[in-house]
Amino acid sequence: MKVKEKLSKELVAQLYRQMFLIRRFEEKSAQMYMLGKIRGFLHLYIGEEAIAVGSIPVLQPEDYVVTHYRDHGHALARGIAPKVVMAELFGKVTGSSKGKGGSMHLFDRRLNFMGGYAIVGGQLPVAVGLALASKLRAEKSVALCFFGDGALNQGEFHESMNLASLWKLPVLFFLENNLYGMGSHIDRTFAGGREVHRAADHYRMAARRVDGMDILAVRDTTQEALEWCRSGKGPYFIEAETYRFRGHSMADPEEYRDKEEEALWRPRDPLSNFRRFLTEEGWAGQGEVEMIEGEVEREIEEAVRFAEESPEPPPETLVEDIYA
């Protein structure tokens, strides 16, 4: 792992904690889905944790986050409490959207977490608008916008890239390239080749590719990109190479990927690698790591208990919050 930033023990432990939290949260969600506590579509972030945790904690409070429907990791990294996210997945009134949004539609206004968007590509134009407001008001806010490789082929992607660059807006386009959009490999859907970040060239946008399984590399790259955006140079495009270790959603039979490919990615698991980095490079002892893990386990258990015990939204809320 290459690092430019000066790391501290506290920081490293904090990053590990967040990654481990997301991993356990997702595993627990899958379990709750099997028990029928969570329904609808459930898309897990397992394997991609280094992206959310490598990038989002670098943001300032005034920055914005928008993302797609695979949004639990981003929401947790931004600081929405696990119990509030879990309650949302359970459809409870204590959830982030009072149980009305669900897994794909997480929001937190106070954290400038402007949401999970379930229509592929739908969040990109919104990010442009957030950045436009920031520029018009001469603020320093950057809009960090996550999207998948599947979104590359939507018109909204190209429209957003063009406008953000044309108007030099502070958008950080963050591609989570996990190689698949549902069952389709990127080679079967994207004509631009595997140097996907080069897609930004056409819009004369700064771009870089990063190993999305390496949290510290993601962190460095994000810091660089944010500086670029904040200094008024316009948008920035990061392509993070990653892999989802689970199906597209819980409903995915996963017949389109072979086990060999998965086996190639397994050793790159961002969580176990970062754990090894911690212990082997002396950032934390085995005991400290286990302590963090124990705390997280308890937090997740508490989140499930909270979600379980929370009340359902009252019937009248069906027609509330339709208009402001």
Binding site: G40, G91, G99, K100, G102, P313, T317, L318, I322
Partner: peptide, 12 residues
């Protein structure tokens, strides 16, 4: 159908 967006919660 109710004049409302579809909520996630099943009962609702």
């Amino acid at each position: 159908g109710a004049d409302a967006p579809a909520p996630y919660n099943g009962r609702l």
